[in-house]
Design a protein around this nucleic acid. Structure first.
Lengths: 153, 153
DNA sequence: ATGCAATAGTTGCAATTGCAAGCGATTATA
DNA sequence: TATAATCGCTTGCAATTGCAACTATTGCAT
């Protein structure tokens, strides 16, 4: 049970976040299965709209996955009629990705289900705690993404 | 940018945790690559010792992945001489999984690297904030795992 | 202007993972 | 104690993902 290396506080914290993520992701997976979406597909749909659209690379950058993953995930979504690729008017290399009406409807349905499940799970903390948690996480996220950017520079 | 469904507070919080996890996981991946381990492999090694060992199924349950994933992940670790399967004396169906000396050394090396990276990243919060965060996350984790258990019942 | 590096996206390939079926061992039930 | 249900683990198969290589386009530096 006890490893020879003493775990640090930060390590414990990281472990906590990891455990929680695993639990949340597992819950997400079950909920989203009802609308036949994987968590990653849902993340992509969440980032789209029906008007201007987004470029594939931008989405990949936000989700920290390689371009080819987005390409093929979008292939699937498009085959299901949920999104539509359209040429970017400003850059002939790029594609803009749009939600179709059907995609919008499914996305909203998924969000309703997902939000209800998340609400229930986050309800384990009272509102004051949720507020606290949110502030801490926002600070952490800001720092982490900044660090990531400077790493990539 | 703005979706037609108003995002709830809980939803925002979930999004934060998700984003942070993605960032942390990306960081983990880079660090662990230096010792040629995937995050999941590292998670498994972290849960092992050199004495009694753990059963494969128990590890899978903790990491919320199916048994076959553990089977094959252990196949790889064993092929690299990091772990060893040994029959469970109490149950002839089961295998107990042990760290080899080499596995122990690598695990400790990985933990040193990983901890240093985590320490640096969690250092974005001051000690008081880390303390706060830890308390909140522990409460959340406890609630979530309890919920998971009752789901599976 | 011209050539060279960087960028957007796609494709081939290998590795990882989940699901379902299967096999031996164990526990529960009658 | 016989039989059925469950459990621990493995294997076949399909799906998802990352990496590297490639094409087409853009932008920068001369």
């Amino acid at each position: 049970m006890s490893p020879p290396v003493a775990p640090s506080i930060a390590h414990e914290q990281h472990r906590l976040i990891h455990d929680i993520y695993v639990l949340l992701d597992d819950g997400d997976r079950r909920v989203l299965q009802k609308v036949n979406l994987s968590p990653l597909e849902f993340s992509v749909l969440q980032r789209l709209d029906t008007a201007q659209g987004r470029r594939l690379t931008d989405i990949g950058a936000e989700l920290l996955c390689v371009k080819s993953t987005i390409t093929r995930l979008v292939d699937r979504l498009e085959a299901h009629g949920l999104v539509r690729r359209t040429p970017d008017p400003d850059d002939r290399r790029a594609q803009r990705l749009l939600l179709t009406p059907r995609g919008l409807a499914l996305r909203d349905e998924a969000m309703r289900l997902h939000d209800a499940a998340v609400e229930r799970r986050m309800g384990l903390l009272d509102p004051a705690e949720q507020q606290q948690l949110r502030a801490l996480l926002e600070k952490l996220r800001a720092g982490l993404s900044e660090e990531l950017e400077s790493d990539n520079r």
